[in-house]
Design a protein around this nucleic acid. Structure first.
Lengths: 203, 203
DNA sequence: GTCTATAACTCGATAGAC
DNA sequence: GTCTATCGAGTTATAGAC
């Protein structure tokens, strides 16, 4: 019988820290809250992770890869563009539905840290949109799609996938929605965003 | 000779608080930093604003209206849709270029506050996309544009305007850009985003 | 209104027993 | 490895002089 991973104290701490850091951010999170969430005391927390900064870095690097999950294989696949775009949007939005609070957390913390810091967070995990961008440029040159800046198209796609999760409270307030209605909106987007993009670039 | 508004102590405090809160967030901001920035001491800060929470609320409500500046007149104007969309994108992105850090600040703080809290922040300032949405629906029914969910179109438009400002460090890292190149990218977007949208919905 | 000084408190971190 | 107890730095907030 294999011991479940999150039965160990270290896993309990990591899960608790993840939850508390996402909820309150680095500055707002308390070591006491993390200890409580993990069902241990502060001293033990410091026994496993020397200080708050190191615990945070550990979590931040993990969550950065959740923010940008292993979808490079789509960017870099040989799929035709009109298939690649819906595939990416669907898979990425699925991931975001599972982890809706990660983008805001990651982008917020990135904004108050020097660029140097998140070089290491990208170690081997950086998104590689270059092949997709080359593909877009090739299709445009070949007259298969209308001329468009590849980087702008990629940013448009990612903006429309991510933003609703970041702007959820604003959207719900402005559009006078409840949780259920918001969930429906997001489900709709999985179909609508790819259509929106393809309608824009097709000739 | 009229006294400049920000010569008063209260205005100095408000400007300082705005700067520090945007930079460090509510949890990360220190009353001492705000006092230093304003060129006064902490005691005087508490004389003007009883506590940190009240000062924050004051700033947050102000910044929420900057986040959503007075652009309702565009949403509600009688402009044709194909003119309204570029006008909105241009004016909104101009505002965001002036205040690039406000969206992340506002959306982050909104996410850790109960919906009830920012009801008051919307007092009289809520964005009113309803007329725009009705217009979209009418144009679709009349066969002037392809069928599309009005709320999705509005969210797409806002996503593409705002997201680059929130995701700036990520975009710069992934696309290997410096500040100047990012500025160019944003300038391009003022033209490209409206085109992208119109190409998508036109018949 | 504005300041200095300090109280009151929060929180990260450590000492030391088991 | 895990706990209780506590230190000490840093912060919000107040008292009280000018």
């Amino acid at each position: 019988m294999v011991k479940k991973k999150d039965d160990t104290t270290e896993e309990k701490i990591l899960n608790a820290a993840k939850k508390i850091f996402i909820k309150n951010g680095m500055a707002g999170a308390r070591m006491q809250d993390i200890a409580d969430e993990a069902g241990i005391n502060k001293a033990l927390l410091h026994y496993y992770f020397k200080n708050k900064e190191l615990l945070f870095e550990n979590i931040f690097i993990k969550l950065s890869t959740d923010f940008w999950p292993r979808l490079n294989f789509i960017f870099e696949s040989d799929m035709p563009l009109f298939e690649k775009i819906p595939t990416f949007c669907n898979l990425y939005m699925e991931k975001l539905i599972e982890n809706p609070y990660i983008p805001l957390f990651v982008l917020y913390e990135m904004n108050r840290r020097p660029a140097q810091f998140f070089k290491k967070m990208f170690a081997g995990n950086a998104p590689q949109p270059l092949k997709l961008m080359n593909q877009i440029e090739a299709e445009a040159k070949a007259g298969k799609i209308r001329p468009i800046h590849p980087s702008q198209l990629v940013i448009n796609m990612i903006s429309m996938c991510i933003f609703p999760f970041i702007g959820k409270p604003m959207i719900m307030a402005v559009m006078n929605m409840n949780e259920d209605q918001f969930r429906v909106l997001i489900e709709q987007r999985k179909k609508d965003v790819p259509i929106f993009i393809i309608e824009s670039i097709k000739k």
